[in-house]
């Protein structure tokens, strides 16, 4: 089948649009998270998403309706834990993430054990995005991207050095909350693209690839977004043509991009 023919299918069009938007949001946020050593927050929140999906399946409601508030609250929880209780970020993420899994497993067993639905969330299926889901995730992605654009300089300042940012009159606490809330929203959306198990890959890998070859902050963010979008487009196309799972393919494409960028850096001698 011709690659161009792919675009004539409605489900492929939806997959490409939703995938690109979500990948863009993920990979841009990833730059900030990576540099603030919060890379694993995506993983932690993804585990919470698992719990919230189990809850949604139990309640027979749409997953986004449950996941979005639960994950938003958990992200604030992680942030408050690190601030108030003398915990490092990674420990706070660990606590909230195990809470998510434990809750999910308990709820799943109450509602009659693991079923196909739950598994489809674990590994994602971007090709099954419905029109309604496309509209919702599109709107939320635009919200996330607008948030990043609006707070770009503040996010940059706080990421570079929180204390000096404060002495420039930036309300670092608010900016930190904005960052974790935007991340939480993005994690819920990314569930559909790569699945709960692989969300952190979509947050970390494009940013890590961009950091290999960028020379400035703005360029790092642009490159990260580009790598994220390219990996999703290539991943969806290859997975459809070879009939392999799309989420895993997207992650492998990202790994290849990262390998090429890291290799290029070593070859051209940038330290």
């Amino acid at each position: 089948m011709d690659v161009v023919d792919l675009l004539t299918y409605g489900f492929m069009q939806r997959a490409f649009i939703a995938g690109c938007l979500i990948a863009g949001a993920c990979s841009i946020l990833g730059v900030f998270l990576l540099l603030r050593r919060l890379s694993l927050i995506g993983d932690g929140l993804a585990h919470v998403t698992f719990g919230s999906v189990a809850l949604a399946l139990l309640l027979h409601t749409h997953t986004l309706l449950v996941s979005i508030p639960v994950v938003l609250l958990s992200s604030v929880g992680i942030f408050k834990l690190t601030q108030r209780s003398r915990l490092y970020g990674d420990a706070a993420i660990g606590i909230v993430s195990s809470l998510g899994i434990a809750g999910g497993v308990l709820i799943a067993s109450i509602s009659g054990g693991f079923n196909v639905d739950l598994f489809s969330y674990l590994f994602g299926n971007i090709l099954s995005v419905s029109e309604n889901e496309l509209i919702i995730s599109g709107a939320l992605c635009v919200l996330v991207l607008a948030g990043i654009v609006l707070f770009f300089q503040e996010l940059f300042a706080v990421t570079f050095d929180e204390e000096t940012a404060r002495t420039s009159g930036i309300d670092a606490d608010t900016i930190n909350i904005v960052l974790v809330l935007l991340t939480a929203l993005t994690v819920v959306l990314a569930m559909k693209v790569v699945g709960i198990m692989l969300i952190s890959a979509l947050l970390i890998l494009p940013a890590a690839t961009a950091l290999q070859i960028s020379s400035g902050f703005r360029s790092a963010v642009m490159l990260s977004a580009a790598f994220g979008v390219v990996s999703v487009v290539a991943g969806i196309t290859v997975s459809f043509l070879c009939n392999i799972p799309s989420g895993a393919t997207i992650v492998i494409v990202n790994l290849v991009l990262f390998g090429v960028a890291a290799g290029a850096r070593i070859l051209w001698g940038r330290s």
Partner: peptide, 18 residues
């Protein structure tokens, strides 16, 4: 962080945020 991806000009620009 020695790997922070920002160029000199971008860092100086942060001083203008206030």
């Amino acid at each position: 962080n020695p790997h922070f991806p920002a160029c000199a000009e971008e860092i100086v620009a942060l001083g203008l945020l206030s």
